[in-house]
Design a protein around this nucleic acid. Structure first.
Lengths: 223, 223
DNA sequence: TTGACAACATACTCGGTAGTATGTCTACTT
DNA sequence: AAGTAGACATACTACCGAGTATGTTGTCAA
């Protein structure tokens, strides 16, 4: 709730208007808890304490609503890693910071990220209508550009001799899998602090980097 | 196809009869490509080249079919790690073997494992009817007993000083995430050999173990 | 004050899908 | 040869949920 308040606020200054934000937020919750296919528009409306009318007033279709959620999710991610990406520092340090920031984004905007994940899955399966196709392709593209940001930094870190791995594409899959994993198992504890979340993200990041052969990350568990 | 032929055959000697195996196999494919909620019984029937009648003759409901698929998936996993589990060897070696075997199972019975994953997800969400509830709980229990097998070996390996990590439950989540990841991104290449699959599984295993602080795994990428 | 529009709610349609009821054919028993 | 049961196919029902059409209320501009 308060965790992503700042990220949420920055959205209010963006393209999306106030009334729609609550819809997106509740839709994200529904898509996370029941999945896209099993979530009915009435479910979202119920969680909003209103009716379909409100939702269809702003969003053309269920798919439209879903993509809006997922796209906002990707915006969160780009915003999260932005500072680390631009930082003047060795690639390995930038990578660590980006990985950590990404993981924090997974935790603090979990519901949105779940929709992003589902979108990617739907794409991998290939089953969609031609209309949604374009929108979906845009989402995948966004996701791939995002992934490419990591790819660049990873390659640089490899050249610096700080990390190493066999198949680069598999290595990236594994890294993202570790960093994304909180999407699935994270559940906010009552009385949890931002520091607690940072610890979780740090452990995920260390794990992810250790797998890439970063010796510093492998040492971390001692600290 | 030929990849899991042996595992498949062992199933034929088990509880499930021949006619049902083809149904399970096609259902698993459908559940993987379209997801449980979006898969209709007619979809499965179409892939079978038959009609609903055949499916409903053996399975009481769509949920029943789904759970059958998922349960068979778990059977594959137990069978896969069995030998490594019983092996007389240091914990770290057993762990490596189990992780590798598990990962291979993810690759070679991918469709089934996708259903297992979805089952776990549905459970986390909590939305089901009381009847399916029991069946679902049984699946989760099976999955947890399976996970506990790894937990034991991991703890032993920690005592031996071969691996280390902070939060054990998070560490296990991360490990399984890495090992399970082929479920989502693996796609059999034309002309792919068993050796190719073993390489993939090995990279995942090395990544997973390196994250747990296994120095040997971290060195692997050189080989 | 009135009209016009935004922001919803209400009430409906209609297609798809789970599940059922029943028919048909074959194989095997006796 | 007849009867029976398993292994399906066919035909139907009932419901749920996406999308739509239309009504209602508040607000603001002129």
């Amino acid at each position: 709730m308060t965790a992503n308040a700042s990220a949420q606020n920055s959205l209010e200054h963006s393209l999306v208007e106030e009334g729609q934000i609550e819809i997106l937020r509740m839709a994200a919750q529904c898509f996370m808890t029941r999945g896209f296919a099993s979530t009915s528009i009435d479910d979202v409306a119920r969680r909003l304490g209103s009716t379909k009318g409100r939702i269809y007033h702003f969003f053309a279709s269920k798919a439209d609503l879903f993509f809006a959620v997922a796209e906002v999710g990707m915006e969160f991610n780009y915003a999260a890693i932005d500072a680390s990406l631009k930082k003047e520092a060795p690639a390995i340090e930038r990578l660590r910071d980006m990985a950590f920031a990404h993981c924090m984004s997974m935790i603090e905007t979990q519901a949105y990220q779940h929709s992003v994940w589902q979108g990617v899955e739907i794409h991998l399966r290939g089953s969609t209508t031609p209309e949604q196709r374009e929108r979906l392709n845009a989402l995948i593209e966004s996701r791939e550009r995002y992934s490419a940001l990591f790819k660049t930094v990873m390659e640089e870190a490899v050249r610096d001799g700080h990390i190493r791995y066999r198949d680069p594409s598999i290595a990236r899959q594994l890294m993202f899998m570790a960093l994304n994993s909180p999407i699935f198992w994270y559940k906010p504890r009552p009385g949890e602090t931002a520091q607690d979340r940072r610890r979780i993200a740090q452990q995920c990041t260390d794990y992810a980097l250790a797998g890439l052969g970063d010796p510093a990350a492998a040492e971390r568990p001692n600290a």
